[in-house]
Design a binder for these strands. Sequence first.
RNA 1: CGGGGUGUAGCGCAGUCCGGUUAGCGCGCUACGUUCGGGACGUAGAAGUCGCGAGUUCGAAUCUCGCCACCCCGACCA
Length: 491
Amino acid sequence: MSKEITSRSENYSQWYNDIVIKAGLADYSAVRGCMVIKPYGYAIWEKMQRQLDTMFKETGHQNAYFPLFVPKSFFSREASHVEGFAKECAVVTHYRLKNDPNGQGVVVDNDAKLEEELIVRPTSETIIWNTYKGWIQSYRDLPILINQWANVVRWEMRTRLFLRTAEFLWQEGHTAHATKEEAIAEAEKMIGVYADFAQKWMAMPVRVGRKSESERFAGAIDTYSIEAMMQDGRALQSGTSHFLGQNFAKAFDVKFINRDSELDYVWATSWGVSTRLMGALVMVHSDDNGLVLPPKLAPTQVVFVPIYKGADELEQISARVAALREELHKRGITTHYDDRDNYKPGFKFNEYEMKGYPVRVAIGARDMQNGTAEVARRDTLTKQIVPQEQLADTVAALLDDIQQNLFNRALEFREQNTTVVNSYDEFKEVLNTKGGFVLAHWDGTAETEQRIKEETKATVRCIPFDLEPEEGRCIYSGKPSKQRAIFALAY
RNA sequence: CGGGGUGUAGCGCAGUCCGGUUAGCGCGCUACGUUCGGGACGUAGAAGUCGCGAGUUCGAAUCUCGCCACCCCGACCA
């Protein structure tokens, strides 16, 4: 199998697929639209999971688990919710197979038809709110701050590895509150947690903001999102947090006695990030040599490659490497020693570049004589010769530097590809030539957004929180506008 | 769901138009040897219901019909 990958500029989608498959993150499976996450890809997901879980616990949340199946009747209680998901649901109708009486194989046993069909959850609001009904009677039972790690199924027409698969892994937070203010604060807090995670751990800059009405979650009053820019200038919605108001409480009749002894409906939020973040990680940092991982999420941060002639040399180098690795482990740095004898160093160099290991250390006979090592960094593909006694210090500093550099690089790219425009002509011009995020005044109506989408394919990604209010006129309708929105082509 | 394309060894492909020895090539794999500072080389070897089913024919990877699967571009999509 060739390790060659398509170049980014030639075909961005192909480049992305090549990296995901050839770096060993995931592959297509026998099931249409579903993927197999391979051990290396899963190891990265586990690191993400662990950190996110820690952040959820730090903000007072607990984990729980709810069923995969949702009775059809539950699902139809909230009108806009069902409208949003109905077209992409997998439905269980039978519970038994039998041998085909006419030949080989099995067929569905028609005698085993379910009284009520079960929907494979596309998200868990309905089953969870049906459960919360039994848990909540008084304001003293609130808030409920729960997170679930789970898989969900959305029968998408067209899928892409990690970015949109029929089944995907995610976490979904579902909280219940006594007041509107508290629920809004929770939704805002959690989008902040996601932004922190994206920027500090994934080294991926994000814009945080509010979704437009038409991009809002089905059943939400307000949706907040983090939006990242991929290297082709397209936007990727990387995490969402929803203020659900009392919609689900009303649909599932979840009432409580408040402090004033009045009966009221509970206020809700939900928030989630998925394995789509893996796709974001690939698309934001990688290059034509393969995957580039931020040190904080790399399953292995440093790989050692020996360069030797004969068993004697290898033995000496191995002993030296063992000592050096020990020093790195004491600092919490993860390492791997690749002493496979059937591959030459050059092959290994390319392989670890493809897999995105942040730092590579090569040690050969020359280094053994000089007491040095060759240290290469993945982000810039540069090399330096370092005295072995300084290796641990150098590598520790280098890992921090790579983490920071990846963030800076992605931020600079985003800034360079963010354009402020003041007319529709300018808007179209920018989208057609340079792409990226376009900041433009918009009258806030769904009609205008729809027209712009039909004419340019660009959508409102979010109305960013950190943008100062500014009087202006909608680039499309000319109506007054108080703030700019981010428009972009999106995944 | 519309348009286009592809199914031949683990992976990537040629052969199909115009039917004809034992179905090839590259990578990978196995064994041995030589190599090893940026994708090594030699020798020997293993590995295929040519997507599935029917038909035409002395003879089908190749022609005909039907089916299935996947990929790409759209439409759709927290």
